[in-house]
Design a protein around this nucleic acid. Structure first.
Lengths: 182, 182
DNA sequence: CCATTCGCTCAACAAGTGATGACTCAACGA
DNA sequence: TCGTTGAGTCATCACTTGTTGAGCGAATGG
């Protein structure tokens, strides 16, 4: 089974990106070194530069989301579905972005744009006054829970099934979905 | 007005800590260099080491909270008061800790312990099933909103008065305060 | 089959980091 | 007054970082 040139290239590129995603998600941008990624991918550090030009470019590629989410149904259940999904196994590219968003300016920009997109999607399915503000708060509620669970690993959430969290959160989110001034 | 030795020492120590808090809060632990703190405090870098032993010790001192919060009344209003306070002018030491908690292990430990304390305080004033879990979720809701506002600077929250945010959030938090299985 | 492409490695550089030890000089105290 | 203390500085070390350019060797394609 001799690998062709293109096959080898694609395979090592994938290995590099996988390692980068894992390390960026675990340690954040600053603490992740090109050398550590290279070592995790069993590759020479110089190759990463040759392929991705710079550490920042590697981060951009590693963080880029795979597929775009489909259109929404019920906003609360959509967001809670996101939660169930997030609480299970948030994809490494999202974790990498979230992990670095507070300390790395470029990651912050990515995070802001991702959150804004989510806010807009949510706003479109809300009625009443302050729709955008309420959409923002819903998004930030999810962000807080996700951070506490996936990034801070709070033991209070560690062993709690996602459905239970979703069940407790549902009335809270519905309160934000309802028009505050009907 | 010749300064005494003790006065000068206290004054420069204060200048160093102020600069450290500001820079740690703005850029996080990794991106803040001893040199930049020294330069902001108009002091030689070596002096900081002499006074605080290491960068980590400086961070510990800079992040240490000034005063402890008083006992609670109504949990929702207490937490929303925290919000009104946080949304106004969260103290630099808290900002510094929050900024670094996702990327710096020691900051993460501090954040976990601060959050756990807040959760415990909240749990004590909650009745019904899943009290601790609900206290955790309330805390994380506030964390998410604080991050979105103070650290990510989302424009949706930037120009919104704290009372309005509190007003929208109140029913949501009350839903978490109420016993889910009465 | 042979010249060429190209995936990949090796060795090294320049910049910046936290940290150290010798030194200067003004405040202190007997 | 004068030796001592201690706040503050200077030069420098040891190390890590991202990044670069020359080179090796195997797949490629004519």
């Amino acid at each position: 089974m001799t690998l062709s040139r293109a096959e080898r290239r694609a395979e090592t590129d994938g290995r590099i990106l996988d390692a980068a995603r894992r390390l960026f998600a675990e340690r954040g941008y600053e603490r992740t070194t090109i050398r550590s990624v290279a070592s995790a991918a069993r590759v020479d550090p110089a190759l990463i530069m040759q392929r991705f030009t710079s550490k920042q470019h590697l981060f951009d590629r590693a963080v880029q989301p795979a597929g775009s989410p489909g259109p929404a149904a019920d906003p609360v259940e959509e967001v809670l579905g996101t939660l169930g999904w997030k609480l299970g196994e948030l994809p490494p590219e999202s974790l990498a972005m979230l992990r670095s968003m507070l300390t790395h300016p470029e990651a912050a920009a990515s995070a802001r744009s991702a959150l804004t997109a989510q806010i807009g999607r949510l706003e479109a399915s809300l009625d009443g006054t302050d729709a955008r503000l309420r959409a923002t708060l819903i998004t930030l509620v999810m962000l807080g829970v996700t951070i506490g669970h996936q990034l801070l690993h709070l033991e209070e959430l560690r062993d709690t099934p996602p459905e239970e969290i979703a069940g407790l959160l549902r009335p809270s989110l519905q309160a934000l979905t309802a028009d505050p001034a009907p």
